[in-house]
Design a protein around this nucleic acid. Structure first.
Length: 292
DNA sequence: CAAGTGCCTTTATC
DNA sequence: AGATAAAGGCACT
């Protein structure tokens, strides 16, 4: 199936899938392969054309956020030279609408881990607990259900390289099964209410909750603050904070809750209702440019 | 090559 | 409130 993208609404599939918001997409040759719900999706972009298999056009539009007016969003967040530079370089990067359950577990895994390691953990987790699928002679695995992970032992989970996160994932999965929690209800809530609900799950702090809000629930004002965003903000936006705050936070590893909330609320207030987009462009910009 | 550092942090404890 | 430590293991230097 095919979709023709309009010139006024930019999209770049590679940026969108490479930027680190999703962990389970792989490029093989010309095509990107990813498992979404119970199917292997296959998609490629050629200029303004998107070609894909195993999904409806509506699904693709929703999953890749193609219904959003990205031109408008990018112009709204373009408050200064720094963010405009990031936007210019990665124009077309879009925030996905991932499955919230998969997103939640993925970001619990992502605490204190780099992206490469997160991918390894999730690959192992899906291989052990997911269902095998095949396409084009490649093997893929579905993301295991809450029930499946709730039944797994800590030892089994830990064998996927999850370390101390195994405990959090087990507890969160059990909690979701026990209460019959439905992630769909979070979409109807305000960003703040949904965040508070997410914070009740074990292993979910401010950063993980903000990632789930942004990358799966379409709460585009969410502004996750990780080490990279902390660095970007303190480097380029230091004048927006008291000098002693900048000194203090620069010279240590983690963030206290109140320090997190200060950077988070700066992001939301400064960049506005699409702050999450600013976050992802800055994140990707800083990561690509600090590697040289 | 060994040892140290860092990783899209959270939680428990003081 | 805020500081501190602990919690896999792996990639990178």
């Amino acid at each position: 199936m095919k979709i023709a993208l309009s010139t006024s609404n930019p999209f770049n599939l590679d940026f969108t899938l490479c930027c680190g918001q999703a962990f389970r997409w792989e490029k093989r040759g010309e095509w990107w392969y990813g498992v979404v719900s119970d199917k292997v999706l296959k998609i490629q972009q050629k200029g303004r054309g998107l070609e894909f298999e195993n999904a409806s056009a509506d699904f693709i539009k929703n999953y890749f956020g193609l219904n959003e007016d990205l031109t408008k969003i990018l112009s709204q967040i373009g408050k200064d030279e720094i963010i405009r530079k990031a936007v210019k370089e990665f124009k077309g990067l879009r925030i996905l609408r991932q499955d919230p359950w998969e997103c939640l577990i993925s970001y619990i895994c992502a605490t204190y881990k780099n992206i490469k390691a997160v991918k390894q953990m999730l690959t192992a987790l899906c291989r052990k607990f997911g269902d095998k699928l095949e396409l084009d002679s490649y093997s893929f695995y579905t993301f295991p259900s809450p029930e499946k992970l709730a039944k797994a032992t800590i030892v089994e989970l830990a064998s996927c390289g999850l370390g101390y996160r195994a405990e959090y994932i087990s507890k969160t999965a059990k909690e979701i099964c026990k209460t019959g929690f439905d992630f769909k209800c979070l979409r109807k809530l305000s960003c703040k209410e949904a965040r508070n609900k997410l914070l009740t799950f074990p292993g979910v702090g401010l950063k993980v909750a903000d990632c789930v809000l942004l990358f799966s629930l379409g709460k585009l004002e969410a502004f996750p603050v990780d080490v990279w965003i902390k660095r970007v903000i303190l480097k380029y936006y230091a004048t927006h904070f008291p000098q002693d705050f900048v000194n203090k936070v620069s010279n240590k590893k983690g963030l206290t809750k109140s320090e997190y909330e200060k950077i988070n609320s700066f992001g939301r207030n400064y960049f506005g209702e699409y702050a999450g987009y600013a976050q992802e462009y800055l994140y990707h910009y800083e990561r690509t440019h600090s590697l040289d």
